[in-house]
Amino acid sequence: MAVGVAQLGFRLNSTPPFGPFSQRNRPRFPKSLESCRRKLISRPLSSSLVDEQQISFTEPENLLIEALIGIQGRGRSASPLQLQDVESAVQVLEGLEGVLDPTSSSLIEGRWQLIFTTRPGTASPIQRTFVGVDFFSVFQEVYLRTDDPRVSNIVRFSDAIGELKVEAAASIKDGKRILFRFDRAAFSFKFLPFKVPYPVPFRLLGDEAKGWLDTTYLSRSGNIRISRGNKGTTFVLQKKTEPRQRLLSAISTGGRVKEAIDEFISLNQSVAKGEPELLEGEWQLIWSSQTETDSWIENAANGLMGTQIVKENGQLKFLVDILLGLRFSMNGTFVKSDTNTYDVTMDDAAILAGPFGVPMEMKTKFNLELLYTDDRIRITRGYSKIIFIHLRIDRSK
């Protein structure tokens, strides 16, 4: 268990060589960068909003970010298709020329946020708890140009509680590889004026406290780093995240979501072109500004839960899984009434059990205001002025 804490951010020698990306089932490298470029779908509004003073990504880096959008638990909940998309985007970047000899560059220095790892839940119970849970933020600090070079893994529980920091003495082997040995760990709680040592007997762990980390890609902007550990685990880390990532992070941690939405929409207003459209596809609700009521059927009818399916010719469906194969379905229509608003009528409800259905007498009308949309995320203001955030879950469109 103690070793598991030390493994946050990289893998130690004690971990068996298994995972979703063994050499046998590793996804094929895309034939050309151009083929990956074509995967970036044109959007009615820009999906890679950029604060020019803080952050910039190349097109292949944006491809990786696109693949990461919507993956929870830093990879723990990723589907096989999502994992393949991420690994393909990672391999594209590893095949490009980033910063040469990244361990010799000052761009590798600083605090990096762990965005994705191929195996977030396969070690100790502590690692599964910390790395696979979105509520905790996980970072890695790299400081190699000091009298005491160090690489540290940090779990921040919240701004109000504090963090756990596991430190390793580090040395540079070559232009890509960092060698490390964990030697101390401590909790820093906001409500205590002193650190609380984490009782890990690093000296007694021997080689199990050692490891290495290769940086296989470091962006020239210093914003993205891809690393692979000594047991084959892949890590994607960022110093600065793009607006959609910050918004989804706020939703995951449950902190300052409305502020993140305001920032996101404000940034979008400066780059939006043309009229936004309600895009076809399946959209999963991930957040709303109103909590659910005690009545699940009221929640379902008002779009406060489940999936929203937008079809051609102005057809709309709410679909909610209830239990034991039962589903709630409600169909309706939408008509564009202004630049970014729609009149929605939902009037055909039923409880479904396989191919059979039991009709229900329900009807609701409301205005839907489209605040932001791209091919992966959508923000609307709907029933009773509630703000809704949906993620697109169908990959065919």
Rank of each mutant, 00 (worst) to 15 (best):
Q7L: 02
S14A: 12
P16F: 05
P16Q: 04
P16A: 09
P16I: 07
P16H: 03
G19Q: 01
F21H: 10
R24F: 14
R24Y: 10
R24E: 15
N25K: 01
R26F: 00
P30C: 00
S32E: 06
S32D: 10
S42W: 09
S47A: 13
L49C: 09
D51G: 03
Q54P: 02
F57I: 09
T58V: 09
P60I: 01
P60T: 07
L64D: 07
E66H: 10
A67C: 07
I71V: 14
G73F: 01
L81F: 09
L83V: 05
D85R: 15
E87R: 12
E87C: 12
V92L: 15
V92Q: 04
E97D: 13
E97V: 06
E97W: 03
E97Y: 02
E97G: 08
P102Q: 10
T103G: 09
S106C: 03
E109A: 12
F116E: 05
P120M: 02
R128M: 02
V131D: 03
V133D: 07
D134Y: 01
S137E: 15
Q140E: 07
V142I: 15
Y143L: 10
V151W: 01
N153Y: 02
N153E: 04
V155T: 00
G162T: 08
L164C: 04
V166N: 01
V166C: 02
I172N: 07
F182T: 08
A185Q: 00
A185H: 00
K190V: 05
P193Q: 07
V200Y: 05
F202W: 11
L205E: 06
D207E: 15
D207S: 14
E208N: 13
E208G: 08
K210A: 06
W212C: 09
W212T: 12
L213G: 07
D214N: 14
D214W: 03
T216H: 03
Y217I: 00
R225W: 04
R225V: 14
S227A: 01
F235A: 06
K239W: 00
P243H: 08
R244P: 04
S249W: 01
S252E: 11
R256K: 14
R256Y: 06
A260E: 09
F264C: 04
S266F: 05
S266C: 02
L267T: 04
L267N: 05
N268L: 11
S270Y: 09
V271C: 11
E275K: 15
L279S: 06
E280Y: 04
E282V: 11
W283K: 02
L285H: 08
Q290E: 02
D294C: 08
N302F: 13
G303A: 06
L304T: 04
Q308Y: 03
E312I: 07
E312R: 13
G314R: 10
Q315F: 02
L316A: 08
K317L: 11
L319M: 07
L319F: 10
R327K: 15
F328C: 00
S329L: 07
S329P: 03
S329D: 03
M330R: 09
G332D: 05
G332E: 07
K336Q: 08
N340M: 06
T345P: 03
D347H: 13
G354T: 09
G354L: 11
G354F: 09
G357T: 08
V358H: 11
P359K: 13
M360V: 13
N367A: 13
L368H: 00
E369K: 15
Y372L: 10
D374Y: 11
R378W: 02
K385V: 07
K385H: 12
F388K: 06
I389C: 11
L391A: 11
D394C: 03
S396V: 13
